[in-house]
Simulated scan of single mutants.
Amino acid sequence: MIHNLAITTSGVPLDNAEKALIMLHGRGGSAQDILSLSQHLNVSDFALLAPQATNHTWYPYSFIAPVDQNEPYLSSALNNVEQTVQQALYSGIKAENMYFFGFSQGACLTLEFLVRNGQRYGGAVAIIGGVIGKEIDRSNYKGDFAKTPIFIGTSNPDMHVPLERVHASASILTEMNADVTVKVYDNFGHSINQEEIDWANKLVFR
């Protein structure tokens, strides 16, 4: 399955905006679902772009399954993120004014895209996610985040995302010169809490 490129937009029209936020939904979710979270974020002056996964799933298996099992879905999903970024760049948004927000499967996709395309961005928020693959393959990772603020929130335990992978992902991002903050919430469940939203606003959407 190759994903169709279908981007739902909201907020300030892209041609009139100076900042853009790319939002990536989780498995079974939708672009509209993830966009609805924007009302809780300090992004009133942002263009909002949310690509929609075909059949509501970015890739079929766990993010810590062997990468080959999730192909060609994963590569297609990453390409959709890249095309969404390029659409914003073509409209005049600078990379340092590009922001990301992903939840669950969308958080994993966000982090995987970032480590493969490291540069100075506005910032990123990943709620319950980590870099993708059974084994971490750093050969795909490149760039320097130049202190881009990245917030990662997660529950411990989480049924889909091991805490060990969250910390490993944060370490990689830090090594790539990102300014990473991780918050772990005991037994919170596979969801987003108000404190994570508050941290996102304080650290990223400030």
Rank of each mutant, 00 (worst) to 15 (best):
residue 195 E to W: 15
residue 42 N to H: 12
residue 194 Q to W: 14
residue 66 P to E: 11
residue 134 K to P: 03
residue 78 L to F: 09
residue 204 V to C: 12
residue 96 E to N: 09
residue 191 S to H: 14
residue 100 F to K: 02
residue 68 D to T: 06
residue 38 S to I: 15
residue 119 Q to D: 09
residue 180 V to T: 05
residue 87 Q to E: 05
residue 180 V to R: 02
residue 148 T to I: 01
residue 174 T to F: 00
residue 130 G to Y: 00
residue 48 L to T: 12
residue 132 I to M: 02
residue 40 H to S: 13
residue 97 N to Q: 11
residue 106 G to P: 15
residue 70 N to L: 09
residue 92 G to A: 03
residue 56 H to C: 09
residue 65 A to N: 01
residue 201 N to Q: 08
residue 158 D to V: 01
residue 80 N to G: 14
residue 1 M to C: 12
residue 81 V to L: 07
residue 71 E to Y: 10
residue 121 Y to H: 02
residue 39 Q to W: 15
residue 11 G to H: 01
residue 115 V to Y: 00
residue 13 P to Q: 02
residue 90 Y to W: 03
residue 194 Q to I: 13
residue 144 D to Q: 03
residue 69 Q to H: 10
residue 29 G to R: 04
residue 57 T to W: 05
residue 99 Y to F: 05
residue 189 G to V: 14
residue 152 I to W: 12
residue 167 H to S: 15
residue 146 A to E: 09
residue 13 P to G: 01
residue 147 K to S: 07
residue 100 F to I: 06
residue 51 P to Q: 08
residue 113 F to I: 13
residue 135 E to F: 04
residue 68 D to P: 00
residue 142 K to A: 05
residue 114 L to M: 02
residue 203 L to H: 11
residue 79 N to Y: 15
residue 83 Q to C: 13
residue 206 R to C: 09
residue 70 N to Y: 11
residue 47 A to M: 13
residue 127 I to F: 12
residue 42 N to L: 11
residue 147 K to E: 08
residue 17 A to T: 10
residue 30 S to I: 10
residue 143 G to E: 01
residue 74 L to Q: 13
residue 188 F to R: 13
residue 49 L to R: 00
residue 41 L to I: 04
residue 16 N to W: 15
residue 73 Y to S: 13
residue 173 L to T: 10
residue 114 L to K: 02
residue 124 A to I: 04
residue 131 V to K: 00
residue 152 I to E: 07
residue 124 A to R: 07
residue 55 N to M: 06
residue 26 G to A: 01
residue 77 A to R: 06
residue 83 Q to Y: 08
residue 155 S to Q: 03
residue 157 P to L: 08
residue 103 F to M: 00
residue 70 N to P: 05
residue 137 D to E: 11
residue 31 A to M: 11
residue 26 G to T: 01
residue 57 T to C: 06
residue 146 A to C: 11
residue 97 N to Y: 12
residue 79 N to D: 15
residue 90 Y to M: 03
residue 9 T to P: 14
residue 150 I to D: 06
residue 152 I to R: 08
residue 147 K to W: 07
residue 137 D to H: 11
residue 59 Y to D: 03
residue 69 Q to A: 12
residue 113 F to Q: 05
residue 58 W to L: 00
residue 184 V to A: 07
residue 78 L to V: 10
residue 128 I to C: 11
residue 142 K to E: 05
residue 185 Y to M: 10
residue 113 F to P: 08
residue 2 I to Y: 15
residue 135 E to M: 12
residue 145 F to M: 02
residue 19 K to S: 14
residue 98 M to P: 08
residue 162 P to C: 03
residue 174 T to K: 01
residue 53 A to V: 04
residue 121 Y to L: 01
residue 13 P to T: 04
residue 72 P to Y: 08
residue 181 T to Y: 14
residue 105 Q to I: 00
residue 4 N to K: 09
residue 166 V to A: 05
residue 3 H to A: 04
residue 113 F to D: 02
residue 80 N to I: 14
residue 91 S to P: 15
residue 73 Y to V: 11
residue 60 P to M: 00
residue 141 Y to V: 04
residue 99 Y to H: 07
